[in-house]
């Protein structure tokens, strides 16, 4: 199978370029394994990865124009040469490794932690199965960044627009029956940029490797705002 992989090594002084590779792939091989096999021939090829099963969120990259996790992407059926690039719109550190700080900064900005003001009970806070079910499709996010780096609004305003991943997490806490930070959370999301830069282009939904739906949650936040803030 033929690959064309983005190479950039800042110390070399050379401009970024696409390097061709070839590999005899096995049936059922995942892209991460293919990249590891390529590393055996060229150990300078740099990319992040760890769990190998789609739960740690390390190995997001852009493959044939689409953001994916390498470890859950079968090589079978990929159009050749397989074009592999770093996540779009992010500062490239080296090869396929980007600086994720703009992404994590927006995550931290939404105060992604449960806020409870009432005194806590001695045992667990009760939550009905129905209330708990509202967190499904939200808490599973692995912070891989596939969605936000596929979002045109995030490319143009990475410092002002929170992006789909952070907004999905904002809703994860707004939707939690235990959370008491609603008012402040909604206040924070007000204004033309943080939330309202989303134009429902749906790129985020299309690429999320965990099948989550940030666009839907953005809509739900808007509805809640209208309801609660008038």
């Amino acid at each position: 199978m033929r690959f064309s992989i983005y190479r950039y090594q800042p110390e070399s002084g050379d401009a970024p370029s696409m390097q061709p590779f070839e590999l005899a792939v096995r049936p059922g091989m995942m892209l991460r394994e293919a990249l590891l096999a390529l590393r055996d021939t060229d150990p300078t090829l740099a990319f992040r990865h760890s769990c190998g099963e789609g739960v740690c969120g390390s190995d997001a990259m852009n493959v044939n124009g689409r953001n994916v996790l390498a470890c859950t992407t079968p090589v079978d059926g990929l159009k050749e040469p397989v074009q592999i690039r770093p996540l779009p719109g992010m500062p490239v550190v080296r090869d396929l490794i980007v600086d994720m700080e703009p992404f994590f900064r927006q995550y931290r900005a939404i105060q992604p932690y449960l806020q409870v003001n009432d005194p806590l009970p001695e045992s667990e806070q009760r939550q009905s199965p129905t209330e708990r079910q509202r967190l499904d499709g939200l808490y599973e996010c692995i912070l891989c960044g596939c969605c936000s780096t596929a979002c045109p609004s995030f490319w143009w305003n990475p410092d002002k627009f929170l992006g789909p991943a952070a907004l999905l997490q904002a809703w994860r806490f707004l939707a939690d029956s235990r959370d008491q930070g609603r008012e402040a959370r909604l206040d924070f999301l007000e204004g033309p940029f943080r939330l309202f830069r989303c134009h429902s282009i749906m790129n985020c939904v299309e690429v999320c490797p965990k099948g989550l739906n940030p666009t839907r949650t953005i809509g739900l936040i808007r509805q809640m705002m209208l309801r609660e803030m008038g």
């Binding site: 932690y113 449960l114 409870v116 806590l120 045992s123 667990e124 806070q125 009760r126 939550q127 009905s128 199965p129 209330e131 708990r132 967190l135 808490y139 939690d176 235990r178 959370d179």
Partner: peptide, 14 residues
């Protein structure tokens, strides 16, 4: 649980 872990729940909320 108090920190926010989204544990699965029984019918009575525990």
């Amino acid at each position: 649980e108090h920190y926010g872990v989204p544990f699965s729940r029984l019918d009575d909320g525990r």
